[in-house]
Design a binder for these strands. Structure first.
Length: 216
DNA sequence: ATTCGCCAAGGATCCCACAC
DNA sequence: GTGTGGGATCCTTGGCGAAT
């Protein structure tokens, strides 16, 4: 590219800019980005001058980015992200529109049919939260006299179990755990798992499923 | 139709001064 | 010391016409 520059006087260029308002969506993203950078910086206790130095940009530039009056290039954004020790993608997580919080009072929840229901396992859903592409589903699982062992279940994601009441032998892959109230298990449910022997009823345990939603 | 060069416009950035 | 804003410069992009 040639480097010939026959620029308009600065005042004239600013007048042209003033005639063309920023796209509202660009404005929105810019403000969200600015807020994210400011939040991460202040949370880390880093002064703007220090962060600018770490990122290799001027402190005035960082100030404008944090105020949303400048839109940083990909390169500058990457430098700032590196200086903050965050992936660039964190800057684009929409914090302003997403404040999922579910509250279920004691004894509440919804009984949900899952694969284990046919074995007499009662699943009570006590919340559901989506954060980005992470889905979290906590259940209170109850096993009673009508429940049968079921230790061949396999699924995806991550699963956490915390026993609240009763005793059972819980299988995970080729291991068998004797669990009692207070015991916890955290595992990849891709391997066969589930209650193999119910030693005392009722058994109640908290079972939390974590799943990453794939976007195409 | 494609490629290349020229040019204007606009965006990103820095320097510097100033306010608090 | 920290943050903000004006002014200037650098760099990229897109439009357009000429050449192939």
């Amino acid at each position: 590219m040639p480097r010939t520059q026959a620029k308009l006087p600065v005042q004239e260029r600013q007048d042209v800019d003033a005639d063309k308002p920023r796209d509202p969506n660009v404005e929105k993203v810019s403000r969200a980005l600015a807020a994210q950078i400011y939040t991460f910086r202040t949370a880390a206790g880093i002064a703007s001058g220090a962060l600018a130095k770490m990122a290799g940009i001027s402190h005035s530039m960082l100030s404008r980015i944090e105020k949303g009056t400048a839109t940083p290039s990909i390169e500058t954004l990457t430098r700032i992200a590196n200086a903050l020790g965050k992936p660039v993608s964190r800057f684009f997580v929409d914090q302003s529109e997403r404040h999922d919080c579910s509250f279920v009072p004691a004894g509440g929840g919804v009984t949900v049919d899952r694969e284990g229901s046919s074995f007499g396992h009662v699943y009570t859903l006590i919340g559901h939260v989506l954060s980005g592409n992470l889905s979290v589903e906590p259940y209170i699982v109850t096993l009673d006299e009508k429940s049968q062992p079921w230790s061949t279940h396999q699924t995806t994601g991550l699963q956490f179990i915390h026993v609240l009441e009763g005793r059972m032998k819980y299988r995970y892959a080729n291991r068998l755990y004797e669990v009692k109230p207070g015991d916890s298990l955290l595992f990849d449910p891709n391997a066969a798992h589930g209650p193999e022997e119910i030693d005392s009823i009722p058994v109640r345990f908290l079972s939390v499923f974590f799943n990453i939603r794939e976007y195409s």
